[in-house]
Structure formats: C-alpha cells, structure tokens
Amino acid sequence: MADADRARWDARHAAVGAGSPQPPDALRGRLELLPPGGRVLELACGRGAVAVWLALRGFAVDAVDVSGAGLAAGAALAERSGVGERVRWVAADLDAGIPPSCAGPYDVVVCQRFRDTGLYPAMAERLAPGGLLVVSVLSEVGDTGGPYRAPAGELAAAFADLEVLAHAERDGEAALVARRT
C-alpha cells in the first residue's frame, strides 16, 4: 500500500473517532454459528469494533490493519471495554500478505469490507479444523460496479473447498460464512 493510502486511512480513522463493539455484518442473525471461544484473526480491522466485540465474547483476537490511527482507536476501545489483554493489535500492510506472526490456526477468521483475492487462500489455510470463515466485501451485485467490487459468485468460488453455511449477494455487498471441515 502506498504511504498516501496509509495516510488517508489514518486521517479517516482519526476523524471518525471511537466506535462501539459490533459483530461482523455477515454474522448478524447467525451468531449461533460462532464457536464458544478460541482464537480469532481479524484482517483489516479498522477501528477494532469487531475485534473488541469478539474479545467481549471470550475470544483471543489478533487484529491486523495498516492504519496506526485505526489500531490506536481499537486499542482504546478494547481498554474501555475491559478486554485490552484479549486483543493483540498488529500493524501490517495486507498488500504484502498476512503477517507471519499471524500463522494460526484460528477458530475464526474475519475480513470485513477489505477485498484482496490474493489473500483468500491464506485466509482459508489459517482456519483450524472446524474453524469459521466470515467474509464480506463490496459487490457488483445490485450495484453499478467499480474497481473494488467483487463480481457475482466470487466468494463462493474462492472458498469452494469450505462448507458454506451462509452466502448472500445483494445491494452492493457479498457475504460468506463457511466452515473448514
């Protein structure tokens, strides 16, 4: 990622400020699919709302993002929520791949609104047996398209080796929840 992109994300995260813990979009209405605990890898965690939400449910979370401002906001949210020790904040440019310090295996891998098709195999590889993959991306389905939007069927095809538990494409978003068997 170019330094200009990193600076843009830092400015955006700093301007928005702290959020509140939130489940991943693809799991809304499907929370029963979450395992009772374990390890989580969240890629492109932004300000940490999902990472903190998972930590509040007892998970140990590795949260990765390129933005120092986003990671700082996430760490502050985790401390305020009483789960600061349950989240490890990892500064890394995902354009270079998933950091070696996040080798897994993980019981849950989450990636929300960050699309890099080159990361799809590594995301699946980091799942423990029975592990849950939770992915959402911008989609061409129900939208005018654009360079960052997935074509119809991309997630289902990319994770065809996993057991798909939920898959939806509409209104410019695609989401997939799948389990490694």
Rank of each mutant, 00 (worst) to 15 (best):
P99F: 13
A73G: 15
A2E: 15
A2S: 15
A166M: 03
F59P: 13
A51F: 00
E125H: 08
A49F: 01
V83L: 10
T144F: 09
V164H: 13
V16Q: 06
A158R: 01
V66E: 03
L94C: 11
A175I: 07
P100V: 14
L165T: 03
Q22K: 13
E85Y: 05
R126T: 12
R80M: 03
Q22H: 07
T181H: 15
V141Y: 02
R115W: 02
G153N: 02
G37N: 05
D5F: 02
A160G: 01
A2I: 10
A18Y: 01
A7M: 07
A78G: 07
R86N: 06
W53I: 02
A75W: 04
R115T: 00
G97I: 10
C45Y: 10
A2L: 14
V135F: 04
V90Q: 09
G37W: 12
A96I: 03
V108I: 10
G74F: 03
Y120T: 04
P129F: 04
L127K: 00
G146M: 11
R88L: 10
L31Y: 01
E154W: 00
E85K: 12
L132D: 05
P151Y: 00
L132A: 01
H167N: 13
V110I: 09
H13G: 00
V16E: 11
S136P: 05
S139K: 04
G131Q: 02
E169L: 13
E154S: 03
L41C: 10
G82P: 08
A168I: 09
V137N: 12
D10S: 04
V87M: 12
A72L: 06
L155K: 13
A49D: 15
S136H: 01
A73H: 13
C111M: 11
Q22Y: 06
A158F: 06
V137S: 05
L27Q: 00
M123K: 03
A7D: 12
C102R: 13
R86M: 12
T181W: 13
G58D: 14
R115S: 03
G48W: 02
T144A: 15
L162S: 05
L165G: 00
P24A: 15
A91H: 14
P24S: 02
V108Y: 08
G17T: 00
S136M: 08
M123S: 09
A103G: 14
G37M: 07
A4Q: 06
L138T: 10
C45P: 08
L155I: 09
G153H: 02
G97N: 08
D143F: 14
G97R: 07
F59D: 11
L54M: 10
D171M: 11
A73F: 06
V141S: 06
E163L: 12
A4F: 07
A69C: 08
V66W: 01
A158M: 09
G17M: 02
L33W: 03
L176E: 11
D25F: 04
A174E: 13
W89L: 14
E163H: 08
G74E: 02
P100C: 10
Q22E: 14
P99Q: 11
S136I: 08
Q22N: 08
L127I: 05
S67V: 12
P121N: 12
L162H: 11
A51N: 06
E173F: 12
G38M: 05
V87H: 14
M123Y: 07
